[in-house]
Computed example of a mutant assay.
Amino acid sequence: MSNNPPNQIKRVRLSISLYLNYVAHGFGLLILSQNMTALGQSWHAPLKIVSFVISGIGIGRLLAYLITGYLADKFSRKFFVYLGMACYLTFALATPFAKNVYFAYFLAVLAGIANSALDAGTYTTFAEMGSQKSNILLKAAVSLGEFILPIEVASLNGRWFGISFMTMAAILLVNALLLAPLKFPAPQQKNAAVSAGQQQVSKKKLLATVCFVLYGYASMALMIWFTQWVTMFGQKQGFSLASSHLFLSLYSIGSITGVFCLFAILGKVSGQRLLIFMNLAASSAIAVMLVSQTAWLTALAAFVFGLTAASGIMQTGLNAFMNLYPSRKGLATGVFYFFGALASFTVPIITGVLSDVSIQLAFGSDLFIGLLASCLGLAINWALKPAEAKQAVQVKA
């Protein structure tokens, strides 16, 4: 074993710092929506306008993912991690003091750019460390931030709302100091020699690329679709308001449980096969919810959906996509998450139109997305099977 203890310690320290950034990112995802009333008062704007400002985060992602992904392969990964931290720090420090909607919208766009820069630098860094399984745990770090923030906001109890923003800023500042002395791994270079077998699968590689890009959209849409409509669907099915909210809570518990289950399984089961199994299981859970007449069965299905669709299966798809382009990991990340951001922008519009027909249709159409994700997983598995048989990908924790 050539890994000496000092190097291993540095890898662990680097991993912890990268996870800390995603705890702050968990704050960033919810911090505007958790402080909507206070922000509206500060900007002298109604809640509808505050909601519009929140949409700026999605615009920032759409604007930045392709650019940061492409440039992450040209410059150091550390630069993009620090760029994401700097953008998030500016957002956290300035938003409580913003006095108009225009500046606040600019800061929200900056938060979206921060998200894309962090993804471009972080996912690729874990891949270069030979630790793509660790990408799955980033979702757990985000969930931790999303868990802490609402508790902190609720505990402020009339005190200045900006304290939650300052907590986010403090995490980033402390982490910037922890990260400064650490070296990031050098990008792996693609082997110049291309075998005849690799040339033969070029068309399949193109098919896999198209499917991965579409999977970036479908895997994000699957989760957003569910979380946006499950509570209203539960009420329309005749369940109580408490039960309907419980479905979303059980989805979240399933998601966190699934992250650790997936982390344990991933080294033993092919990532491509997991894309098929997990999305089929998620589709089955939605089908059960559509026909269920009992709260306990619907609650169980909501948990199973979180366990499968929101367990990190999107990150598993990204890992496999990066393996397909070992010298273009940053660009692969940018393209994959660009389509994920496109889903977060378009799904509310699509489901809003469907809800005019019925809430059941708006929620139930997620079954189509789950089946689409399953079919994409099947196509990816078929396209990559020859390469997989030749060279088994070993993923180290």
Rank of each mutant, 00 (worst) to 15 (best):
G84Q: 03
L71K: 02
A264E: 08
P96S: 02
F363E: 03
T90N: 06
L20I: 14
L110M: 07
K268L: 04
Q41W: 13
A108D: 05
K183V: 04
A141V: 10
A221K: 05
L20R: 05
C375T: 15
W160Y: 15
T346Y: 04
T124D: 03
L110N: 02
L29D: 14
A141Q: 03
A282F: 02
V335N: 02
A186M: 09
P326D: 03
S143M: 13
P181L: 11
I59Y: 11
C375D: 09
K139Y: 09
S311D: 07
L222C: 10
A282P: 08
L372V: 12
A176P: 05
F321H: 11
S270C: 10
V101P: 01
L20T: 12
G352P: 00
N7G: 15
Q199F: 04
K205V: 09
G238W: 03
V109D: 00
T351L: 08
V291L: 09
S374E: 13
A140H: 06
P348T: 12
K133M: 05
V53M: 14
T298W: 04
F80D: 02
T90A: 14
L20P: 11
S284Y: 05
R11A: 15
V174S: 07
N21V: 12
I276Q: 06
F27Y: 14
F233P: 02
Q188S: 08
M322G: 01
G317C: 07
V153N: 09
F91C: 00
F52M: 13
F345Y: 08
A196P: 01
F368M: 14
S131T: 10
F260H: 09
Q315R: 06
S270F: 11
K183D: 14
F239N: 03
I224R: 04
M289V: 05
T351P: 00
V210G: 09
S15K: 13
V393R: 02
C375Y: 12
T90C: 12
V174A: 13
K203R: 12
G112E: 00
Q391P: 01
N115Q: 02
G330Y: 00
I256L: 15
F103D: 01
L177Y: 10
L172C: 09
T122Q: 02
